[in-house]
């Protein structure tokens, strides 16, 4: 799980072009969206859906579904672990 979390942090930084943010700056349990966390928005959610499908073979059809899955890097990692074939 720790390894997956670190990998996801790297992917988020690269794909979402999070300038000046290092993996160590991201708290795996902090919210990704809205105030207080990384401040991601609905466009980032679409980009995360692509990360899941391209890199992990997991398909999410409805962006609204992503709300709980994408809460934090940790919830994302848990979802991947549970759903990866």
């Amino acid at each position: 799980m720790e390894e997956l979390i670190e990998k996801l942090k790297g992917e988020l930084i690269a794909e979402l072009n999070l300038e000046e943010i290092k993996p160590a700056d991201i708290d795996a349990e902090a919210p990704l969206f809205g105030d207080g966390g990384l401040g991601l928005d609905s466009i980032d959610a679409l980009e995360i859906i692509l990360i899941l499908e391209r890199n992990y073979g997991i398909k999410i059809d409805n962006p609204a579904q992503g709300k709980e899955i994408f809460y934090s890097v940790k919830t994302l990692a848990e979802y991947i672990t549970a759903h990866q074939k």
Partner: peptide, 13 residues
């Protein structure tokens, strides 16, 4: 641009 467009969330895209 970082000096002028200070909103990082919008700038990164």
């Amino acid at each position: 641009y970082k000096e002028i467009i200070t909103d990082a969330t919008l700038r990164r895209r």
